[in-house]
Write a protein that binds this DNA or RNA. Structure first.
Lengths: 337, 337
DNA sequence: AAAAATAGAACAAACGTTTGTACAAGAAAT
DNA sequence: ATTTCTTGTACAAACGTTTGTTCTATTTTT
């Protein structure tokens, strides 16, 4: 049984393809198609197992019913979570998502964007992986709405939804200080990225507010490897930090590996707190305290936002920061001395 | 700057759209297009920033350059890993992947398949979430190649690539037995699914071979919740098992939660081994031993396989089982008595 | 010098929709 | 008995490609 098309239905129903199309698109009333005709069309469609050809309709209408999501890595549970949420949210609007991972590589990101553009995506949600935004601006200038989530750019008019990274970092740092820590090291991610800058700023401000100048900021990537290496280096210092603030869960995992190799216990020997939550964190040797980002809210807002833009509505507020949530587990203790 | 089309290029180059199309599709030689003409076309295309309209070409050719991947849940790191691998593998062939998660729900799975069919996917890679296969057979009968990975069906002629679940379970069980365990409980997943059946069989055979009849098989779902509940129940028994074999990483996490709530230590109080590996497993309170599935190999094979089928090549062997790998960490010890 | 072969490029149909507009037939108004 | 509405439906163009076929020069052969 070959795929039936609108013409087959028209023949079976004894009507024109115009009529069929209008009935199937819910424009029957608008074009005053008779009840019996509607009935005939629907029956024929069912009988023929009709599935509309998206390509044809998209070619005609210019609407693809597709949005793209680019994230740095599906293997990172934090982004996988975002992808999952967005996927389901988008589907509710009868759109479909094409997910791409840029592998934390700006060039890959650019290439993928080009490929996606060729597929007539109607909108783009992206967690940019670098500090470049020109290619995203280009897409936007083509009339395709773009929304950044998680990571974003401050001075460009690309809408974004993210966590209030400053507040998250500030609170986490304050929490460390309140538990008595003063020698705290912050292992950061990509320095050019806004979230990283804000997290670092939150960290520094909290330290300064407490009159602590005894801090180190190091690292340069949101990766396992960066966390591992920097921690290794830290542990060489004659005066080790008593606490580490990792600016992502990947970094934190790297830390943990390095700590484990040195047989250091958390929080007995050293305290650790991180950005990003994940179910697994609760089952680690020491359940990890963290700054939880409102992933679900971000995802849902982003989708609603994007679809509004696609429908040509302008949105009231195009730059949104949602409050993070400090989850206290067992990885922060009193400073070891 | 509006999107340029083939006609714009033709005008700029002073040639017909036919010629332009042929040059751009690499059919210049075949149709003996002159070198200068080719040059002109290419220059114009570059100058106009031409991006071909996939819809139009797909409408014409019937080829969408798209394959679909349906997995039970993106939130499960095991499947996220598969998705990531497949995504990148597919991209190398200039195809694109639409990822859907069925949320472990057969009805969702069916609905998504329908939606995807309407998008003219050229092939489907699926980790089926239930024990129904009719909808997949339908797709296949429409001439769209289908490949099951991880989970599959034995008696249907849908090609599959998976782990040798029997061997994996057999070896893991044998490993437990060798460490001295005899009272072992296996917490299984969806009973109707082939991998589950084979894992259970591997478990039972290993037990029988060792002359152990003192085992329990329980559970009915590859979920966190199932693992949690079943473990809770197990711990009520007057004669607790000394080891648990969880048939998925989600189940294992549920186990761990239940064990933790009872303040039981792994492996001191009870041993645990599981199917599926994940980086996090190495950082748990007790690094978890597991049966690692060759995710990358499965993914790459599936993609190559699928693309062969799409190109109309028949494939030599359509049912492949790859060897699993037992990763020994610290979660299995001598039985507590 | 005429015929044949070759190289190079264009015509036009087709893919399956959507949609502005036109048309036909009956009902209502004159 | 005409004209004017209304109701219901169909025509045909358009979306941007691809591709089988045809056409026109130019070159080669006879």
């Amino acid at each position: 049984m070959q795929k039936a098309n609108i013409t087959d239905i028209a023949e079976m129903a004894g009507l024109s393809i115009t009529t069929v199309s209008r009935v199937l698109n819910g424009k029957a009333e608008q074009y005053r198609i008779g009840k019996k005709s509607q009935q005939k069309v629907r029956e024929a469609a069912k009988k023929l197992n009709y599935v509309p050809n998206h390509f044809a309709s998209n070619l005609r209408t210019g609407k693809s019913g597709t949005i793209a999501l680019i994230i740095p890595s599906l293997n990172n549970p934090f982004f996988a979570g975002i992808a999952s949420e967005i996927n389901t949210a988008v589907r509710k609007f009868n759109y479909i998502t094409i997910i791409s991972d840029s592998d934390e590589n700006v060039d890959t990101e650019k290439m993928e964007l080009l490929q996606l553009a060729a597929r007539n995506i109607e909108g783009l949600i992206i967690v940019p992986c670098g500090d470049q935004w020109e290619h995203m601006k280009e897409i936007q200038d083509m009339g395709i709405p773009v929304i950044c989530i998680d990571r974003y750019f401050e001075d460009i008019d690309i809408p974004f939804i993210s966590t209030d990274n400053y507040e998250g970092a500030f609170n986490a740092t304050k929490y460390l200080i309140e538990r008595g820590h003063s020698r705290i090291t912050c292992i950061q991610g990509v320095q050019g990225s806004t979230p990283n800058r804000l997290r670092v700023k939150g960290f520094m401000d909290a330290m300064k507010e407490a009159g602590q100048e005894n801090y180190i900021i190091t690292g340069d990537d949101f990766t396992f490897h960066n966390g591992y290496l920097e921690t290794k280096l830290l542990l060489q210092l004659k005066e080790r930090p008593t606490a580490i603030f990792a600016l992502s869960n990947t970094i934190a995992m790297g830390c943990m590996k390095a700590l484990k190799e040195k047989n250091l216990q958390i929080p007995k020997d050293i305290s650790l707190i991180t950005f990003d939550d994940h179910p697994y964190l609760d089952y680690l040797s020491t359940p990890l305290s963290c700054v939880e980002q409102p992933v679900k809210d971000i995802s849902i807002m982003a989708v609603k936002f994007l679809l509004s833009l696609i429908q040509g509505k302008s949105i009231a507020q195009s730059q949104v920061l949602l409050k993070p949530n400090l989850i206290v587990r067992d990885s922060v203790g009193a400073p070891a001395e």
